[in-house]
């Protein structure tokens, strides 16, 4: 995004002294523009300025007045249909609007051309390129002068209040991204920070060693498939990279539980809880350990805490069902077993 230029009242006065043919319209323009851009003498960039109104006719002769679309987001594209970059910009806009209904409903795109051409020629090209946007003719280049166009295409994004929020001179390979982000921001779909990260991406962070992460993924994958020996090896490898890895200890704890080794499982879960006493997965694991040792009260205290925190994993409901079964509360046990079945069905 860049500053297109500065508009001065002086220039408008100069413009009003042109040939007789242009004199009338330019004077009207000049006055309106002068009024609208008094502040621009201080080299204010086009962005953040309130747009000057204009009225231009489209190829069918229908007049389009900018202020009539106030309340909508407007994208003005100044360009020529013979020009590749203008066509690329139009295709990008078409693609952006086709992807999101929210954009189609609230965004008005207008193409403003200035070349003195036969209307039929324009219509032919418009149809050939399947451009769905109105094409407005500015063969006197008055609106071009208003918006200080020196590069084609030049694109302006105007918010619902008629303020130019962004100006894109020319076409770049980032046109799609930048336009999409600008519109997304205006429609409240992305934050200002996200917009900024698209407009001014500063480069990716340097790569970090992910060996540990890879072993963890591997171990989880093996554990879920029942290859416990291999999973244990992978967890051990992960621990070499991060000796305090919560995920590794949790995974090992789960395997030990499955292998009916509650003491070893308990050691693993306690290690996690030592560093993070509120870790729900570890609390649940310890609950299972107590359950397998027959220490029902201890198990109940932990598992109730876990359930109260809305913790959900593959088998939490089954474990709580088991707890209630062991307590002799078959009604509650059935309720949790059913919940477990429902969860399994949902996952399938």
């Amino acid at each position: 995004m860049g500053k297109i230029g500065n508009l001065s009242v002086q220039r408008i006065k100069i413009m009003s002294k042109v040939s007789a043919k242009q004199k009338v319209c330019t004077t009207i323009m000049g006055v309106s523009l002068a009024l609208s851009s008094i502040g621009s003498l201080s080299a204010q960039p086009l962005e953040k300025r309130i747009t000057a109104n204009f009225a231009l006719k489209d190829l069918a002769g229908k007049e389009h007045v900018l202020k009539d679309v106030r309340g909508k987001i407007v994208v003005l594209i100044f360009g020529e249909l013979y020009q590749q970059n203008t066509v690329k910009a139009l295709q990008d806009m078409k693609k952006i609007l086709s992807v999101k209904q929210s954009y189609r409903d609230t965004v008005e795109v207008l193409l403003i051309v200035s070349e003195k051409k036969n209307t039929q020629d324009y219509l032919k090209v418009k149809e050939g390129l399947e451009i769905p946007f109105p094409i407005l003719l500015d063969d006197q280049r008055t609106v071009y002068a208003q918006y200080e166009i020196i590069a084609l295409p030049s694109t302006f994004v105007i918010d619902r209040n008629g303020i130019i929020v962004a100006a894109f001179p020319s076409y770049t390979i980032a046109y799609y991204d930048h336009m999409d982000a600008q519109l997304g921001n205006l429609l409240g779909e992305i934050s200002k920070e996200e917009l900024e990260s698209v407009l001014n991406f500063q480069g990716a962070s340097p790569p970090i060693d992910q060996t540990g992460e890879r072993y963890l993924s591997l171990a989880e994958h093996l554990r879920k498939r029942g290859w416990y020996d291999s999973a244990m090896n992978a967890y051990q490898e992960a621990l070499k990279n991060d000796p305090a890895s919560t995920e590794a200890y949790l995974g090992m704890g789960v395997i030990y539980l499955d292998l009916k080794k509650p003491d070893k499982a308990g050691e693993a879960f306690q290690f996690v809880l030592k560093n993070n006493p509120d870790n729900l997965a570890a609390l649940k694991g310890m609950g299972q350990v107590y359950l397998s040792r027959g220490e029902i009260d201890k198990a109940e205290s932990l598992l109730k805490k876990v359930i109260a925190a809305n913790y959900v994993d593959d088998d939490i409901f089954y474990v709580v069902g088991e707890l209630y079964e062991k307590k002799g509360n078959h009604k509650e046990a059935m309720r949790y077993y059913k919940k477990n079945c429902e969860q399994l069905l949902r996952e399938q």
Binding site: M1, G2, A151, F168, P169, S170, Y171, T172, I173, A174
Partner: peptide, 11 residues
Amino acid sequence: HGPIQQNNCVA
């Protein structure tokens, strides 16, 4: 120049 301002050497 504009393309440089826009990070767009490939222009």
